[in-house]
C-alpha cells in the first residue's frame, strides 16, 4: 500500500465503521456465552454397552486361620502335668520370646488354665483356638461390627461374589496386636532421575530456565 496505491478512497465515517466493529464483537461475545452454558455440562461420552448379566452378591468366605507354631502346640504336651500358677508374672524360663503387649492382659485372661488346649471367654466358656476371634470381640465389639461390614481388616477376592474374610489372628499377633513395622518398597524416582536412557541430548538444566 504505497502512496501511489489507492486505498479505499475516503473510508466511510469512523462512527459507522466503529459500529460495524462493535456489532461484530458483540456477535462473537454472544456466541461465546451461548456455548458457555453448554460448557458447564460435562461431555456426554460413553459407549453403548450391552446389558450385562448380574454377578451374585457378596458372599463372605472365611479364610482359615494361619497355622500355629509347632514348637508349643499342643499346649497340653507340657502343661498337662503341672498345676497352673495363676499369679500374673513375667515369664522367665519358657515363652519368654512372647512379648506381651496387649493392654493389661496376662496369659490366663485368654488361655484356659483348666483345659490347656482351649481358650476361654470372660464367662469361662471354652473356645477352641480356631475361633479365637470370639475372644477378641469381647472387648473389640466395634471392630467386630466393622469387620463384618468388611471395613476392618483385609479383604481379597471379589467385591461382588466370593469375598474372603480373615480372622483377627491372620494379621494381629494376639500377644502384641499392633502392626509390626515393615520395610517399605523403593521410593518413586524423582523427575530429574527419569531420563531418556537413549536420548542423545536431554540433560537437565537444574534450577532455572
Amino acid at each position: 500500500m504505497s502512496s501511489d496505491q489507492t486505498g479505499p478512497e475516503g473510508p466511510s465515517p469512523p462512527s459507522y465503521q466503529l459500529a460495524t466493529w462493535v456489532l461484530l464483537g458483540t456477535a462473537v461475545v454472544l456466541v461465546v456465552s451461548l456455548f458457555g452454558v453448554r460448557l458447564e455440562q460435562r461431555p456426554e461420552t460413553t459407549r453403548d454397552y450391552p446389558v450385562r448379566a448380574q454377578v451374585p452378591d457378596a458372599l463372605a468366605v472365611l479364610m482359615p486361620a494361619p497355622p500355629m507354631s509347632d514348637e508349643y502346640m499342643p499346649c497340653s504336651d507340657c502343661h498337662a502335668e503341672e498345676p497352673a500358677n495363676r499369679t500374673p508374672r513375667e515369664l522367665e524360663d519358657d515363652h519368654d520370646d512372647k512379648k506381651l503387649a496387649h493392654g493389661d492382659l496376662w496369659c490366663l485372661h485368654c488361655h484356659s488354665a483348666d483345659q490347656r488346649d482351649y481358650l476361654h471367654l470372660a464367662d469361662d466358656t471354652l473356645v477352641p483356638f480356631e475361633n479365637s476371634w470370639q475372644l477378641c470381640t469381647q472387648c473389640h465389639a466395634k471392630k467386630l461390627r466393622d469387620w463384618r461390614a468388611g471395613v476392618h481388616g483385609k479383604r481379597t477376592g471379589h467385591w461382588r461374589g466370593e469375598k474372603e474374610y480373615r480372622t483377627c489372628v491372620a494379621c494381629h499377633d494376639p500377644h502384641s496386636p499392633a502392626f509390626k513395622p515393615i520395610a517399605p518398597k523403593p521410593r518413586p524416582r524423582r523427575p530429574e532421575e527419569i531420563a531418556g536412557g537413549s536420548s542423545a541430548i536431554g540433560e537437565h538444566a537444574h534450577d532455572g530456565l
Partner: peptide
Amino acid sequence: GNQAAHGLITSNMRDQV
C-alpha cells in the same frame, strides 16, 4: 528428529511440570 525418535523424554518436561 531426536525427539521423534526417543519421545518427549528428550525434553525436561515430566509429570510434575
